[in-house]
Design a protein around this nucleic acid. Structure first.
Lengths: 167, 167
DNA sequence: GTAAACATGTAACAGGTTACATGATTGT
DNA sequence: ACAATCATGTAACCTGTTACATGTTTAC
């Protein structure tokens, strides 16, 4: 249940509403984990029902601010340490590349060009840590950004190499 | 519907049964796309119902050999060329790394050690192309293997670097 | 006043996982 | 005879997507 753990993780930093959390998925976690609006709101209700989080404030327009509970923090720590992560392989880009021999060389080359373009565009500006963000000594957020930079570069180089291999 | 397209792709190479296809997901596509037994068999029925594939032979133990139809090949080509692939971000490894500040430094270091170990283990032997495999000029299969090698190396280097950043 | 942003909720459907269920064939 | 492998099918459940539905507040 990674989506729920992602929510617990985000709330471990500070309390937030569903709306806030949704924005965090599109910014901080944009290259890490995806979630839809529908998913976030229903997960918050579930997490609230099981006591992992609680409503700590209500604001205008029905806004509900949630905070992590002690149980929620325990669960988050458990998830982070309990088992080794496994790489869930479902790579759309590679899947297509795998079957490129059913199209002609020009179309295959065009495909790798698309991958290169995607890699060049996809590079987001590293966000400055916000003022109210308390700097923790080992900066795991920037380690994730660094992974992203390396992945993007790797993918671009690979697609360039692959493009030249055709014919 | 990438799962169904993966099946069309595999069948474009040669006819196969559900059982055969399942093994291909665990070998050729092990680092590309994951599928369960349950999924494969029901997808084959759907694809057969919509005329993308057809039963070309029946063997012992109820074995059914499926082959791609002309419509199926058209659909496969369509999928490969129609739209740019988008990177679907759901990276379990990164998600955990992102929240490592809720555990202590030793546990965080252990996490990166796990990632390194996983990367070292995960490296599968590149399979020799089988005898009856007709060599196509640009070898897209080996391009996918190359991507994998680069990804594994990148991830190992990143985890090593990240581990040293702690404290 | 009105558009943009804020803010939530739910229903229908598609895709994926786990577990159960069954049986035939091959090799030793 | 027995185990391993071959071979398929289905039901319950969980996760994720798309679309609909509603209303408030802020800024211009």
């Amino acid at each position: 249940m990674s989506l729920e753990h992602a929510l617990l993780g985000l709330l471990s930093e500070r309390p937030a509403s569903g709306y806030d959390l949704l924005k965090l998925f599109d910014t901080s976690l944009a290259n890490v984990w995806h979630a839809t609006q529908s998913q976030v709101y229903s997960a918050l209700i579930r997490l609230s029902d099981t006591g992992m989080i609680e409503i700590v404030a209500e604001g205008p327009r029905g806004r509900k601010t949630y905070a992590l509970t002690a149980d929620g923090l325990t669960e988050l720590r458990q998830w982070l340490t309990a088992s080794s992560p496994r790489d869930e392989v479902r790579n759309n880009i590679l899947l297509r590349a795998f079957f490129l021999d059913v199209v002609d060389s020009d179309q295959a080359r065009a495909y790798f060009a698309d991958v290169i373009q995607m890699s060049n565009e996809g590079q987001r500006e590293p966000e400055e840590p916000s003022e109210d963000y308390e700097e923790v000594c080992p900066d795991y957020r920037s380690m994730v950004l660094e992974y992203d930079r390396r992945l993007t570069a790797m993918r671009r180089d690979w697609a360039e190499w692959a493009g030249t291999q055709i014919k």
